[in-house]
Design a protein around this nucleic acid. Structure first.
Lengths: 144, 144
DNA sequence: CTTAATGTAACCACAATAGTTACGTCAACC
DNA sequence: GGTTGACGTAACTATTGTGGTTACATTAAG
């Protein structure tokens, strides 16, 4: 599986923690989250560590440890998740710098870069439209 | 380099062919294009083969062979290139199907799928705004 | 028939992703 | 203060995608 399911898993984990806390629990363990996501606890911990760097979750150690949200679900958008978890841009420029002697080889990278920036901007704006509260609400409506 | 520079290389190749034809030549060889892109001719041929399937270029074989545009630069957008060259969606859902017994595990995939569809739509709309004629015009302005 | 280029297969190198095991570290709680 | 449960992380494997390279059959113009 070589696709980037990190946004999916991260959003899943955060939503799960949010619902779990809303039901009265203080923290959720990576074990519980991994069971819901159907993956390994270490994978969850690695991902949550990135989300912690972004200030979305906090972790406690020791006995009774686990993960808690740092921000409420309505204030977290898919863009926040995306930025926390996805490192690079979607489109890359050339693997090797093209021949600068030619007109096309010389000038095409900056021109495409501008277009790619526009795409990234549009993508971010669209991701920012959905909060994790939206996600939770819709999935609770869907399976009551 | 594990990034998807295929759109970049494909757009580069098409623009190069367009300019070359505009200067009076009938076809461009993968060798020439590869020199401008600074890569291997086989890489160019593999990519142009995909663009041919999408109806953007045609190839001739035999002596004096090479590649020619099937459509003019003003009618080719970055979206056409993207669709011809990029196979899957940007965001993937879960690697393994999540635990359907839990509320979150059961319903989150469709909910995120809707959001991802919106992102793809926005991305496509943005890519469609730039034609290869735009690209050529801007890069000719930039390095006259 | 020569020749120049496409059309592909096959292989290698490299990086990203996900999964897994293992173990050190921490802090609550009896 | 030791036990314990969970985090924090390193290390390794397997799989996949991407790009580069070599090699060679195929094609059609001249």
């Amino acid at each position: 599986m070589g696709a980037n399911s990190r946004v999916t898993v991260a959003a899943h984990a955060l939503t799960w923690i949010g619902l779990y806390q809303r039901r009265g629990h203080e923290v959720a363990t990576s074990e519980q989250i991994a069971t819901s996501v159907n993956t390994n606890p270490v994978v969850v911990r690695r991902l949550l560590a990135q989300l912690r760097k972004a200030g979305l979750v906090d972790s406690r150690r020791g006995a009774g440890a686990g993960w808690a949200l740092s921000r409420d679900l309505p204030t977290i958008t898919l863009l926040d998740v995306y930025e926390a978890v996805e490192p690079g841009p979607i489109f890359a420029l050339h693997p090797a710098t093209p021949d600068p002697e030619r007109v096309v080889g010389h000038g095409i990278a900056p021109v495409l870069g501008v277009a790619y920036d526009g795409v990234e901007t549009a993508l971010r704006a669209e991701l920012a439209r959905t909060t994790l509260e939206d996600v939770l609400r819709e999935l609770l409506q869907q399976a009551p």
